[in-house]
Structure formats: structure tokens, C-alpha cells
Design a protein around this nucleic acid. Structure first.
Lengths: 200, 200, 200, 200
DNA sequence: AATGAATGAGCTTTCATTCAT
DNA sequence: CATGAATGAAAGCTCATTCAT
């Protein structure tokens, strides 16, 4: 498996570079500021080359977002598999997500208004991915409720509130004097756990 | 003061209509989908006319956002002046903000990445306004802490988490089966209060 | 009826100028050589202006072809209404069509592979128009057969052969030493009538 | 002569495949729809390879058209060499040409506006070829006139009318319910002979 | 021989902005 | 005041062509 010729490896690498270039611009100036021209010129390429690797701009943005989402999902999944308590899992998940948001700014990919950017199959697949991610969280919340650790309530509402609060972080983190990311994320997690933890 | 000739009154009214038209489009299709052409055509005007009332597109958007922000600020301020407990004030503020978001969708104006859209003086003034709004909330939170009703913590962090959670609502409210707005907003408020209320 | 303001008249005129510009290029270099840029620059306009009058390039070409087709149809219809014999009508129709082809080169609009250029509604309407034109000819041929003037045969086949021969003229007329157009067209008609006239 | 090494033979074969691929696309979607990319991909090649065999796109198209023209000329020449009457030769030539058009669609190569596509030497040579083909027809017509079988008239005019009618067939044949090609072509020939045959 | 990769010119289209009337 | 008209800058995309390997 994964037998790629040198050429293919190079091509994969190039694609990734392009995706990263696009992500950087998105993170800095927003999706609508992304032009194929700029994505290319950051890599000292020309527009034409980008079109060699991607069908069109929507495809490029789609794959960018997809990459970010998958990275975040992977991290959260590995947290879920650790042998720790539900509460710790939830906390770690929030910390992880928050770190993703403030470091790679991938958080926006979860909170984005996908419908305003994508169409057709692209849209469907990203929505699907977002839902998978949500379900991972929901499962965790449900378990906590069953075990009597969390308050009994509407899972989706709580999950969405937590998501909203986390994703919002991207907008104000930098103002907070660049506190250590890990530390910052843990503080956030501690706060957000109050939304769901049963108070003694 | 406030003595406007008939002509001036008409002009003011026209401006407001244009602003509303712009806001509608923003709410529906998002920020970047706003074109001067569409703003005008919704009012059976032509593009040229819009430029009679506004210097340029940035000006138009600036004033739109400003109007939304001011409306929301006004509502929150009148809540703050009511003769009710701090906790009730906070709850009412959250309810009010949430309703604004899901009905007029003005919430986006608070959560928007202003820096990605505005420049120069426009940007400064909107940031200023956003801060005023934040301070109103902060004052409330501080009072609650002083009175021992709220947990003692970093006010800005909690305020930003609450803002994030509230603003995120715009993205998932409609899926919730169109529950009554007031009722929905109160549910949200009850959840979010847990972030700050001391548990007995 | 037909009450147009001065402005509207000007606009109509402008549209016509643009259509003519497009037709000229088509006639000279073929459809695919038509660029919006060139259509505009021939009128000392900019591309942008053309898009003020037409939705897109397909719309521009559609209206160009349509205009040509309608002009040709009109001429043939007035021939059909004249009080002359069937044979004379057919001859005049052929003459007229031939003259159209070699002078305004509108002939190509009939013979063009519409499917290779147009799509959707545009395509449908032009095909419809082409069929109307064909029917006018067919009716004439049928009458002639009924009256025993023409040989009895498949109308569509004969009509299509005549069309093909006439439309082909555009490709070789200029080589013929610029004979007088009318005279030339009559010669063509005399030849083509042999296809259908009963020989004594 | 004609001593080609295995390598050379392979190269010739490859070239022919590429030419056929180009012709197929032309026949199906028209001239301007031919892209080097598609020509190559139909043969599971890459664009680069095509450029190994042809100088540039014009060269590729030139050789494609040339091949079609030569094939058609060959067929007509063998008809001319048969030991049959002039009238039968003309009829057979028309049948043959018509069949070529509707089966291989090579007809377009004769009727195409070469000047809109080719330049320089390419253009000259194709025009030359087209003229050779025309002369074969013209010789036949002249002989028929000399023998008193055909009406006395301008040979070129008649030849061009016949060409136009035949070439036009490509546009409407398919609508005719897919009549047998041979039968169809003979019907066409019988009609077109009326253009030139002396009526008794 | 063949190909993957890159390029650049050219085209269509959108849209904020201006301005004479 | 309002509008029709025009403009030009930017963006997306296609494709013939080149070239190192």
C-alpha cells in the first residue's frame, strides 16, 4: 500500500503546498479574499499551474477545507480512544479543538457557512464531514449523561453552544497577550465544562 | 436640533431603506454577496442613486453594520436600566441578543471579522462600537461578581465565550424545528448562565 | 404602439450596432473568432459596455443570428405574398435568399451547426426559427407539386438540397469576378429550378 | 522506396491514430472543439506525445484534413477510371462523395472555410488539393457537355452547386430516419443529376 | 519516445465607480 | 435627484506550447 513513485510523491506534496497556501490566505483574510493568483504567487507559481492540480477554485477551496476538517477530526478521535474518564475526554476534546483553532485556525472550517461558498457534491460532502464531527461530540455528551456526570438536556443544543464558543475564540485570542496556547485552551475548556457538568 | 426640512426627512428615509436592503442581502446570502446593483434593484432604484446617498460601497456597508449594532446596543441598554436583579438582567440581555440574531440576524454584525471588510476610519469606529457593546456586558458581569452572584473569573473571557455561543446560534437555529423564538432564546440563556452563575 | 423615448431609441440603436459588429466579424472570420473585445473595439467601446446590453456572449451571438434569420424570413415571406405564379415565387425566393447570403452573408445563419454553438433556450428558439423558414419553402414546393408544375418527390430532400447549394454559394461567389449580385443570383436560381421543375 | 524500419512503421501508425482521433472529434463536435488534450486522451496518451509527432496544432489539423481529402479524392479517381458511361461516372462520383460525407463525415473537409483555420503554406496546400478535386469533377462535366449529354453551361457554377448540395447533406441526413446510406446517396445523386442532365 | 509539469497569453465575466443629462 | 450608460480593473478559466527528465 501507498506505493507512490517519486513523481507521484512530488505531486502530492505540491498539492499540499497549494492547499496550505490557500489555507493561509483564508485564515488571514477570509475565503473571499482568496484568489487563485495569490495562492499561486505565494509559491512562486503561476495561476495556470494551480489549475493543473485542481479543477477549479471551488475544488481548491473544497480540498483545503476538507484537509483542515479531517485533521481536526483525527485529533478528536484519538482523544476519544484514550483510556480516560468521560469528563477528561470532553475536556481534552475541547482543548484540542481550541488549539486547532488558534494555531492553524482550522476552526473556521467547522463554523463556516458552507452553503454560502460551496455547491453540489462539494457542499454535501463537507456537510457530511461536519456532521460526523458533531456526532463524535454528541456521543461523548450522551455517554456522560447516561453515567450521570452531565446534566440531562438536549445534546445538540449544548454541543452547538460549545462549538460556537470555541469557534468564536479565533476572533479574540490574539488580543489576550499571546498566552500560552495550551494553557489558554485549558482555561477555555474549564469554563465550557460548566455548561454540562453537574454541579455538586 | 432635529429640525429637518421635508426634503431632508425624505432623504433620511431613503437612506434607511437602502440600509435595510443591504442588511437583508447580508443576512440572506452573506457579506460578499452584496452588490450595489442588488441593493438598488430591491428598491426599484438604480445603482447610480445609491451613490447619491453613500460615498461608496464601504460606506454603505459601514452604515448598515453601524445601524444594526446600534439597534442591538439600544435594546441591551434598556434592559440594563430595568429594575430587576443582576441575574435577571444578564438573562434578559442574552435573550434579547439571541432574538436579535435569529430574527434580524443582526448578530453577525457583532461577530463579523470587521478587519476583513473595513479599513481606516470605518474600521476604527465599528471596533469602537463593538467595544462599547462589550463593555456593557462586562459591567454587568463585574457587578455580579462583586455581589457574589457570579463566579470570580476573567470577565473578558467569559463575555467572549458567551458572545461566541450566542452568535453561533445563527448557524443552527433553523434546524431546530422553528421553535418559538422567545422560548428558544430563553433556553439558550438558561444554558449560558451556567457559565457564570455560582452553583449552590 | 412603438412609443419609445429618445433614450430608448438610442439604446435600441446601440444594440443594433453591436449586433452588426458581431455579424461582421462572424461573416469575416467565423463565429469562433468573435471575441467580445473585438465586437466592442470596432465601435470604439469597451468590453464592459457590451455587457451592459447583453447578458453574455451567447446572448449576443443568439441575437445576432436571430436578427439575420428574421431579416431573411421577412424577405422570403413578402415574396410569397406577391401575386405571381408558383414558379416565379420559388425563383424569387431563391434569388432573394442567394442575395442575402452573398451580400449580408446571412445565409450562414441558416446553414450553421447551431448545436455546436448554442445551448438551452437559445438553441431551441433558433432551431424553431430555422424550421419556420424551412416550412415556408416546403409549402411552396408542395403547392407546385399539387399543381403539377413540379416533379412529385420528397419535399424535404429537395428543399435541403436547394438550401445546401444556396448556402454553399457564400464560399465561392467572390471568386466569380464579382458579377452583379442580382444577375448572379438569378443564374443560380435558374440552375436550381431544374431540380424540381418538370421538364417539358 | 517505402522501406521503413520497424520503428518508422510504428511511428507512421501512431501518427495515423492521432489523425483519426482528431477527425473523430471534428466530425462530432466541430472544428473548434478539437483540443490537443482530447485528441491525446482518446488514445490514452498525453498532450506532450502529440507534439512529438506534430509540430503544432495547425499541423495536426492540416494533416487530418489532408488525409480526409486524399481519401475522398482517391475514391473519386477510381470511379473515373472505371469503364462506364460519363453519366454513370458522375452519378457514382456523387454517390461516393455523399457516402463519404455521411459516414466518415469527411465532406466537411471539402466544404470547410479553410481560410478561417489555416495560414501560410498549410492553407495553400489544402486549397491546392481542393482544387485538384474540383478539377476532377470539372473534367467529367466538360466531357459530358462535349458529348452532348449535359446541358451546356458554366462548369464551375454547376460543380459548386453540386458540392454545396452534397456537403449540406451532413446537416440533415440523420433526421431522415437513418435510411440505408447507399440508397440515400443514390437518391441524392438522382436528384442532383437533374442539374446537369439534358432533359429529353 | 513519452510524460508530467509549468507557463502565459487570451478570453469571458463581474462589479464598483463615474458622469453627463 | 435620478438614471442610463460607460469604463476599467480584476478575477476565473482554458489551452497551445515548451521542456527537463
Amino acid at each position: 500500500m501507498n506505493i507512490l513513485s517519486l513523481r507521484e510523491k512530488k505531486a502530492v506534496k505540491k498539492k499540499e503546498e497549494i492547499l496550505k497556501s490557500a489555507v493561509e490566505i483564508m485564515a488571514g483574510k477570509g475565503y473571499h479574499a482568496v484568489t487563485v493568483e495569490e495562492v499561486a504567487s505565494r509559491l512562486l507559481m503561476t495561476k495556470g499551474s494551480v489549475y493543473y492540480y485542481f479543477n477549479d477554485k471551488e475544488d481548491l477551496l473544497y480540498q483545503s477545507i476538507r484537509m483542515l476538517m479531517e485533521q481536526t477530526i483525527d485529533k478528536i478521535r484519538s482523544v476519544l480512544e484514550e483510556e480516560i474518564t468521560i469528563v477528561e475526554k470532553l475536556k481534552k476534546a475541547i482543548v484540542q479543538h481550541t488549539i486547532s483553532i488558534i494555531s492553524e485556525r482550522s476552526g473556521f472550517s467547522i463554523s463556516i457557512r458552507l452553503e454560502q461558498i460551496f455547491t453540489g457534491r462539494y457542499l454535501e460532502e463537507l456537510i457530511q464531514l461536519r456532521e460526523e464531527y458533531s456526532e463524535d461530540f454528541d456521543t461523548l455528551l450522551e455517554k456522560g449523561m447516561e453515567e450521570g456526570l452531565f446534566i440531562s438536556t438536549n445534546v445538540k443544543v449544548v454541543r452547538n453552544l460549545i462549538f460556537g464558543a470555541m469557534n468564536g475564540v479565533v476572533q479574540w485570542y490574539s488580543q489576550e497577550g499571546e498566552m500560552d496556547k495550551k494553557e489558554f485552551a485549558e482555561m477555555i475548556a474549564n469554563h465550557l465544562l460548566r455548561l454540562i457538568l453537574k454541579s455538586k
